Every structure is written in C-alpha cells, then in structure tokens.
Amino acid sequence: MQPAFAAALLDAEHAVPPGLLAADPAERFAVYRNNVVSGLGRALANGFPAVEAIVGAEFFAAMAAIFVRVSPPASPVLLDYGAALPDFLNSFAPAAELPYLADVAQLELAYTRAFHAADAQPLPADTLGRLTADRIGALRVNLHPSLQILRAAYPAATIWAMNTGRLPLAEITDWSAQDILVLRPQYGVDVVILAPGEAAFLTALQAGSTLGEAAAAALDAAAIFDLGPALAALFMRGAVTACHDSQEDP
C-alpha cells in the first residue's frame, strides 16, 4: 500500500489509495496531497530565496509543484531537499531565458550546506608567518569542513548578492564566469569571488595535494596565480584547520 500511497500523493492522475478511512476519501486525500505539495514548495522557497526573488513567488510556486512531483524527498529530513534543483533548472524550458538560474541555485545549496556543516576551529591567521619558506611547499593542510568551491559559468555570486539584499540591484555589465568560495569559519557563511587560479588551488588542497603541488595546479589553470596572496587569503579567511608535513599522517 505504501508505494501506491506515495505515487498518488504526488500525482493527481493516480487513483486514491484503497483503504482510506474517511467520509469522502477522494476529497480528503486531495486536500492532503495539496498540503504536502505546497509544504514541500515552501521548503524549497526557504532554501532558495534568491531563485525565488529572481523568478517571482508565483513562478517559483508553479515550478516547485512540478519539481516536487518529479523529485520527491528521499528522506524525511528536508535539510538537503532540492539538491537536484540546479539540474532541473538547466532543463526547465520556462526558465530557458535565465540560464544563470542553475548556478544561483547551486550557490544557495552550497550556502545551506556550509551553514549546517560540522564546526572546526580555524588556525590563527598569523600561523602562516611562523612557517619557513623552505617548508611551505611540502606542507599539506586540512581545510574547514564547510568549505565548498563552485565554478559558475555566470556571475552567480553577484546575482545572488543582489537578490538577497547583500548588494543593491543594478545592471550587471560583466557576465564573466565566477569561481566562488563558500565557507563558514565561525558563525556566518562567507561567499567570496575567487581570483584566477584559486579554485584550482583549493580543489587540489581538498584532494590532499601539498601546497607546492596545489600551486602548480593553480599555475596550470591561471598563469597569473600568485601563491603568496592566495596563502595569506586562505589563512585570513579561516579556511585552514591544520597543517602538517607531507611525510606525516594528517
């Protein structure tokens, strides 16, 4: 009965599940179905406020009703519900004129995940000054568990900031791609537009590369990458929780 109930709950074309105890099972079930779909839609709106602001509440509610039916929750915990929304938006024809929408949704997912990530104490920013130059290249670092890197094809961080009140609404003149860092070193989530090469640098560090190896990867991605400022920014942002020699266990 459970599969039939779940299928009917999200699709009005399905017959009402048998065995329901109510004076008018079809009417009662329709009310329940509407409440479930609208409730999940509100959960999506709470998780994607910038997307809703861009398309408008009415459009978002209609889109959410379709998304809920094709991608119902896989868990009773709604914290990560909407993980499939960026891919959905990429193929959602009514939003075709807003090709950046999926990038903004991906950023909002990263923001939520960073907010709820495990806590970890960043190393003090002056730690970098105590490292000797001949040692730095062989070091590996542990990055904060909230840290996420996005490679957006559009200026998603700027669009997101304008549609969440962090920046005033204005015409965007530079539609270049943005590499974005999302991080919660303490209590608030930071969204940072990365300099050229920094995304490759951080991605390599996340994969376990030494600082020297990560710097080489960053230079391959962007010849103007500068290890000094990138390292300083890494510590100043509270992104590093530990560092150790490459020969040591993490």
Rank of each mutant, 00 (worst) to 15 (best):
Q2G: 08
A4W: 02
A4T: 10
L10E: 00
D11P: 01
D11C: 00
D11K: 00
H14T: 00
A15L: 03
A15T: 04
P17D: 01
P18N: 12
G19P: 07
A22S: 15
A22E: 13
A26P: 04
A26G: 07
E27N: 14
A30E: 09
V31T: 14
R33E: 14
R33D: 12
N35D: 05
N35E: 08
V36H: 03
L40C: 01
L44P: 12
A50M: 09
V51E: 05
I54F: 13
G56H: 13
A57C: 04
E58N: 14
M63V: 11
A64V: 09
A65T: 12
V70P: 06
S71K: 03
S71T: 03
P72A: 08
A74K: 13
A74T: 14
V77K: 14
V77P: 01
D80L: 10
Y81R: 07
G82A: 08
P86Q: 03
F88K: 07
F88A: 02
N90E: 14
N90M: 09
F92I: 01
P94M: 05
A95G: 07
A96F: 06
P99T: 04
A105K: 02
T112F: 10
H116F: 15
A117L: 09
A118G: 05
A120H: 00
Q121N: 08
P122E: 02
P124R: 02
A125K: 14
D126T: 11
D126Q: 13
D126E: 12
G129D: 15
T132K: 15
R135C: 08
I136R: 13
I136C: 03
L139Y: 06
H144V: 01
H144I: 01
P145W: 00
P145G: 01
S146H: 03
A152F: 08
A153P: 09
A153H: 13
A153W: 09
Y154D: 02
A156C: 05
T158A: 07
W160P: 08
M162L: 06
T164C: 11
T164W: 12
L167C: 10
P168G: 09
L169N: 10
L169D: 02
A170F: 02
A170R: 09
E171W: 00
I172S: 05
T173P: 06
T173H: 14
D174N: 12
S176G: 11
D179K: 04
I180M: 07
L183N: 05
Q186R: 08
A195R: 04
L202Y: 11
L202S: 00
T203S: 15
T203W: 11
A204G: 08
A204P: 05
L205G: 00
T210A: 03
A215Q: 03
A217W: 11
L219N: 03
A221M: 09
A222M: 06
A223S: 08
I224M: 10
D226P: 03
L227A: 14
A230H: 08
L231P: 04
A232L: 14
L234Q: 02
L234M: 03
F235E: 06
F235H: 10
S246G: 15
Q247G: 09
E248W: 14
